[in-house]
Computed example of a mutant assay.
Amino acid sequence: MPMAADDIIAMIRDAIPDAQVEITDLAGDGDHYAAKVVSGSFRGMSRVKQHQAVYAALGGRMGGVLHALQLTTAVPN
């Protein structure tokens, strides 16, 4: 069952309240998304730790309900 982009945004914002999240459905199938997540909470974190924080926010749905997520993270300017 595909996962709605709004659900992904809500889960990320629940875990990372200051996150600015942009989601793009790459294949139009609800299974392959690109996400850009910008958060001040990423400051001082390595890129790997930033990505791990986003994956943790998705509560284990990666590889199951959510098949693929092309992830870009950043700290606000």
Rank of each mutant, 00 (worst) to 15 (best):
M1Q: 12
M1Y: 12
M3P: 12
M3I: 15
A4K: 06
A4F: 02
D6P: 10
D6M: 08
D6C: 04
D7H: 10
I8P: 01
I9R: 10
A10M: 04
I12C: 08
I12P: 07
I12F: 11
R13V: 02
R13M: 03
R13W: 02
D14A: 14
D14N: 05
I16N: 05
I16K: 07
D18W: 01
D18N: 03
Q20E: 15
V21E: 06
E22V: 14
E22G: 04
I23D: 11
I23N: 05
T24Y: 15
T24A: 15
T24M: 11
T24F: 11
D25N: 12
L26Y: 02
A27F: 10
A27V: 10
G28Q: 11
D29Y: 14
D29W: 11
D31G: 10
D31P: 12
D31K: 06
H32I: 08
H32R: 11
H32C: 13
Y33W: 12
A34T: 09
A34V: 07
A35C: 02
K36D: 06
V37W: 00
V37H: 02
V38A: 10
V38P: 01
S39F: 09
S39K: 03
G40D: 05
G40H: 00
S41M: 12
S41Y: 02
F42Q: 06
F42A: 05
R43Y: 13
G44C: 08
G44M: 04
M45E: 15
S46P: 00
S46E: 00
S46W: 00
S46V: 00
R47K: 09
V48P: 14
V48L: 04
K49G: 09
H51K: 11
H51A: 06
A53K: 14
A53D: 07
V54M: 11
V54I: 13
V54R: 08
Y55T: 10
Y55P: 01
A56W: 14
A56C: 03
A57N: 06
A57G: 04
L58I: 07
L58P: 12
G59V: 05
G60T: 03
G60D: 00
G60H: 10
R61C: 12
R61A: 07
M62E: 06
G63V: 11
G63L: 09
G63S: 06
G63H: 08
G64H: 15
G64F: 14
L66Q: 09
H67Q: 13
A68K: 03
L69C: 09
L69Q: 07
L69N: 07
L69V: 05
L69S: 04
L69A: 09
L71Y: 13
L71F: 13
L71A: 10
T72Q: 14
T73K: 01
A74F: 00
A74H: 01
A74D: 14
A74P: 01
V75W: 03
V75H: 01
P76F: 12
P76V: 06
P76N: 05
N77A: 14
N77R: 10
